[in-house]
Structures are given as C-alpha cells and as structure tokens.
C-alpha cells in the first residue's frame, strides 16, 4: 500500500451513467489482487472532502507502464467529479488496499455479479483464465445495456439474466444461481461462490450459501474515510457468532469478506 500519483489515460462513458476510467500508476504501486480497491482522490478541490473507495476492474502491465481500471456509475458528488476528469489529469490514490477474493484450489468458482458489481469479478475471471481454471459466471442486470464487460468473459461458462428480459433469462441472477447449483450438481466440496452487487442481492446469495454450507465471499461497498483501518468509520455488522462482539473494518478486513457471517440486515 502506497500513496501514489496517477494520471488519467482514458475515461469513457460505456453506457448511460456508467464510466470506465484508466489510471496510469507508477511502479511503486504493487500488483493488486482481484477484489482489492484503491482509495481515490477524485479531484484537487476540498469539495468533495473524502476519497472514494473503488474496487478495481482490472490491472495492466506493459513494459514499465502500469495502469488500473475502475468501472463506476455516477451516483453522487464524488463520482460526478470523477466522470468529468479528462485524459492527462493528475490525481492520486492510495492502494492497493484491503483483502481480495481467495479462490481455493480444486473447487469450481461460481462468480455471481449484479449490475456494476461486475467490476471486481471481471478482474477475477481474467485471473482465473490466466491460470486456466474453469469457472462459471452468472451476471444479472436491469437490462442488456447494463451488462458491462460480457464479451470479456472468456474461458468460463457464462449465463445472463436481465430484469426486463432484453437478453438471457428474465429475472434475478439468484434464480440462475439456484439452477446452476442443482443443474450442475455442485456441492460445497466442489464449488464456491464469489459475488458482488447491490447489498440486497448479496444478502439473498449469502442466505443461499449459508443454508447449503457453501463457501461464499462477497465484495462489500460503503463509504470510507481513511481506507486503512485507522478511523473505524466503515464497520461491518456480523451475525451472532464467535466474532459478533466487534465490527470489522470494511477497508482492512474487507472489502471481500465471508458473506455468510455478515449481518446484511444491519449493513446499509
């Protein structure tokens, strides 16, 4: 983890309100793991005051050039400022931060993405492909235009779901997961789940996993102040259990956590 300056290589609106920004980082920026995030200062001004945590969509290294990619939606002041940053603009970021996904050997990874939560899972799927590991990718969104990065998903088995039925299964990606689980006869010893998306979806997926004893890692999202575990501003509530007397900090014990111990009902 380091504070590094970075410059905008490109910043495109890939669909309405959704952007992909590529930031060149110096060599002192360590190679990130899928699921890790950067704490990005979106502009030079005092306003907005805080950095924004973004999971990485990808990391590229060509010769001496290193770059990180962030896929983000314009949802508030920070992302609004970031969307306007043009090629060549200098920003800075702290990273890579947090805990990423940790696939276990000899189990089929089932990646379950909801909407823009696809970003860290695209990163993970590329890593799995590089390692020639088969995987299953289940991707749900509101409509086909929100299915960012679908063409990039190679080396795995892909199933799509849309709320409006514009492509793939009409309905929730949770239904796809249920079908996949029974249809392919996975068991907790042969497969595990990696997921990112709206917390309501993650809640449902973690219930699915807990009921069946499936290992399930989810990437959480929330506001952060320091990003390095000092300020304790990003607590994750846990279900009753051996660890429930404390609040892990999402920034250092996450953002990827065991989904089955998170108390989603108390997580905003």
């Amino acid at each position: 983890m380091n504070l590094v300056s970075c410059s905008v290589v490109s910043n495109h609106e890939v669909s309405a309100g959704n952007f992909l920004i590529t930031l060149q980082v110096p060599r002192s920026f360590a190679r990130p793991q899928p699921g890790q995030f950067v704490h990005l200062r979106v502009g030079e001004d005092i306003e907005p005051l805080l950095r924004r945590p973004y999971s990485l969509e990808g990391f590229t290294e060509r010769g001496a050039l290193r770059a990180v990619r962030v896929y983000f939606s314009v949802v508030g002041r920070g992302s609004g400022v970031l969307a306007r940053q043009e090629k060549g603009t200098k920003l800075d970021l702290i990273g890579p931060l947090g805990i990423g996904f940790t696939p276990r050997p000899r189990r089929v990874p089932i990646l379950v993405a909801g909407g823009r939560g696809v970003a860290p899972l695209l990163f993970l799927s590329r890593r799995l492909r590089e390692r020639k590991r088969p995987y299953v990718f289940l991707f749900g969104a509101r409509s086909r235009t929100d299915l960012y990065g679908v063409r990039e998903i190679r080396g795995g088995r892909l199933h799509l779901a849309t709320d409006d039925g514009s492509i793939g299964y009409e309905g929730s990606v949770l239904d796809l997961l249920e079908r996949e689980w029974t249809g392919a006869r996975h068991t907790p010893l042969t497969a595990e789940i990696f997921t990112c998306g709206p917390h309501g979806l993650l809640h449902a997926i973690s219930d699915f996993a807990r009921e069946r004893g499936i290992r399930c890692e989810a990437s959480l999202e929330g506001p952060m102040a320091c990003g390095v575990g000092a300020c304790r501003g990003c607590p994750v509530p846990l279900l009753p259990g051996p660890d429930s007397g404390r609040y892990p900090a999402m920034c250092v014990e996450g953002p990827v956590m065991d989904a089955t111990i998170v108390d989603w009902a108390r997580l905003p």
């Binding site: 005092i46 005051l49 002041r77 506001p223 300020c231 501003g233 509530p237 108390r266 997580l267």
Partner: peptide, 19 residues
C-alpha cells in the same frame, strides 16, 4: 465495539461521524 453503522457521512466541505 463502537456504534452501529453507518458511522460516517460526507456533508458539504465536511464529514459527520459517530464512531
């Protein structure tokens, strides 16, 4: 253990906390 979430909220040129 600290307070339940959310503990922080950005405001215009400021931040509220209830750590």
């Amino acid at each position: 253990a600290g307070n339940p979430p959310p503990r922080i909220c950005e405001t215009p040129s400021g931040m509220l906390n209830s750590i």
